[in-house]
Design a protein around this nucleic acid. Structure first.
Length: 479
RNA sequence: GGCCUCGUGGCGGAGUGGUUACGCAGCGGACUGCAAAUCCGUGUACUCCGGUUCGAAUCCGGACGAGGCCUCCA
């Protein structure tokens, strides 16, 4: 199935609205940027989706191109009005607030089995780069200063040669946007569609940095500029002169990902900023967007009381169960996040661990990689896994590993589970020995009594006979 | 109001212009002292209405329904 000259990887590109062969700008330096969390509070289960989805893509890219050839950048937004307000209200600095929230975020996504990105840049560490880009945009004539703000002038973009049309990514025409516009028109904007690159900090709770564009008043960045700055620094400038490609292509990178809600306005505006600042046709070649998640059939919202944090899910479920549950649906489809779904995922995982045992991973199955390479068809890949389950355990495990699943041995998992549950293995073994004695004595009442007790304690027992015909009973805790 | 995505069996969820998805649950069988675990087998489907076609669940149009964006929300 592989196409000559490529690895066979196809990805759906929001920019072209089609599933295209993935052709890296330089296969020796595959570069991906994903919009990460705004760290002001516990991350919710919807935030976990892009983390898991792009983690699978990261693993797949490393498999296809070699680990050393792939660079994954996922930013941390550590300055915005919610952060500013919450930090001020708590009497701490935004850095103190965001450090604490970021630590919690890392705990959450580590439990979900996500690899750390190669670079995890923070917005507040890149104010210089933001200023540079803003100054470039002013110089290019697509940004203007008004009342200590710097605004991107959307209409001016059309006058700049070699850059895309505004709206090309999200497929919106300026006319449509203006017609259905609910944008608040600030008096200092030349046009309602213009968006903020930089704004002045005047209130006590607003952190400030030296402003660009000759503005004396300290200020802070608008929402979109940080991604233009950080992707440029870590995926473009960091590779300056090292890429084997056309010079114009060296100013963009391969994959830009995030939630579907970010397509507009966030990614549209990032794209506009980066393209205009560097005079390029596109900021990234492939734009990928994951679908949304509902909880028990309803939109997740604080007013409905179904705002589920990752933390709450992890209190009840193994992170690996949550991960499998997420990957059972194709990333562009909506997911209905339900308890019954998690229960089914847990059953599947128990089954898989039993099949995988303590085998070491070897090489993933070609048909499995092929399924994943088809626009990250994890649902198909999981069905392949069901087939591989009864085959070679090493191949099964290596395949699952591309999804970030089955990272442990069955023994290690069972031990961890026993420790968590507070069950004393010696006590269970004693009960099982007593039951075998009762069975040998044909004392069925006693044997059944012990069995019922074990089941009541959440133990699954598996009766059998050893090679010499002796009764043996294995047991485990299922979850 | 404008733009976009989606609608598959009890449930989850792929795929394809004509042949079994797969998984979970259910049911039947094997195994068992009886169970459990495991293995084998098995039923039910493509929202509705038109159109294109030898043939559509798969392509086109419409209806209905669900969700998203246009509000710094993944």
């Amino acid at each position: 199935m592989s196409t000559i000259g490529t690895t066979g990887l196809k990805l759906y590109n929001t920019l072209t609205r089609s599933k295209d062969d993935f052709v890296p700008i330089d296969p020796a330096a595959v570069r991906m940027y994903v919009c990460g969390p705004t760290v002001y509070d516990f991350a919710h289960i919807g935030n976990a989706r892009p983390i898991i989805v792009f983690d699978v893509l990261y693993r797949l890219l490393r498999h296809l191109y070699g680990a050393a050839a792939v660079t994954y950048v996922r930013n941390v937004t550590d300055v915005d009005d919610k952060i500013n307000k919450r930090a001020f209200d708590s009497g701490i600095t935004i850095r103190q607030l965001t450090d604490g929230t970021l630590e919690q975020f890392h705990k959450d996504i580590d439990a979900l089995g996500a690899l750390r990105p190669d670079v995890e840049p923070r917005a507040t560490d890149h104010i210089d780069e933001m200023r540079q880009i803003i100054d470039r945009l002013v110089a290019a004539g697509v940004a203007y200063v008004a009342e200590d703000h710097v605004l991107f002038e959307v209409a001016a973009m059309a006058r700049l040669p070699g850059v895309p049309k505004y709206g090309a990514l999200s497929r919106r025409s300026l006319d449509d946007m203006i017609a259905g516009s609910r944008v608040e028109v600030a008096p200092y904007k030349r046009d309602a569609m213009d968006f903020v690159l930089w704004k002045p900090s005047t209130e006590a709770h607003e952190p400030g940095w030296p402003s660009p564009a000759g503005i004396a008043q300290p200020g802070r960045p608008g929402w979109h500029i940080e991604c233009s700055a950080m992707s440029w620094k870590h995926l473009v400038a960091a590779f300056g002169g090292r890429l084997k490609c056309e010079p114009a292509d060296a100013l963009s990178f391969d994959i830009h990902g995030g939630g579907i809600d970010l397509a507009f306005p966030h990614h549209e505006n990032e794209n506009a900023q980066s393209c205009c600042a560097f005079g390029v046709e596109r900021m990234a070649s492939v734009w990928m967007h994951n679908g949304f998640l509902q909880v028990e059939g309803a939109k997740m919202s604080k007013s409905l009381g179904n705002f589920t944090t990752i933390r709450e899910v992890l209190d009840e479920w193994d992170g690996e169960v949550a991960r499998l549950n997420m990957l059972r649906t194709h990333y562009r489809q909506p997911i209905d996040w339900t308890v019954s779904g998690l229960e089914e995922s847990a059953r599947i995982l128990d089954d898989w661990y039993r099949a995988a045992g303590d085998a070491d991973p070897t090489t993933p199955a070609p048909e499995f990689v092929e399924a994943l390479a088809d626009d990250l068809n994890t649902a198909k890949a999981i069905s392949v896994l069901h087939e591989l389950k009864s085959g070679d355990a090493g191949v099964f495990k290596a395949s699952a590993a591309l999804l970030g699943l089955l990272p442990r041995t069955a023994t290690a998992r069972a031990n961890a589970r026993n420790a968590e549950s507070g069950v004393d293995p010696a006590e269970i073994e004693a009960l099982i020995a007593a039951r075998i004695a009762a069975r040998t004595a044909r004392d069925w009442a006693e044997s059944d009594r012990i069995r019922d007790e074990l089941v009541a304690r959440g133990i699954t027992i598996m009766d059998g006979k050893d090679a010499s015909g002796q009764l043996i009973t294995k047991w485990e805790i299922r979850g």
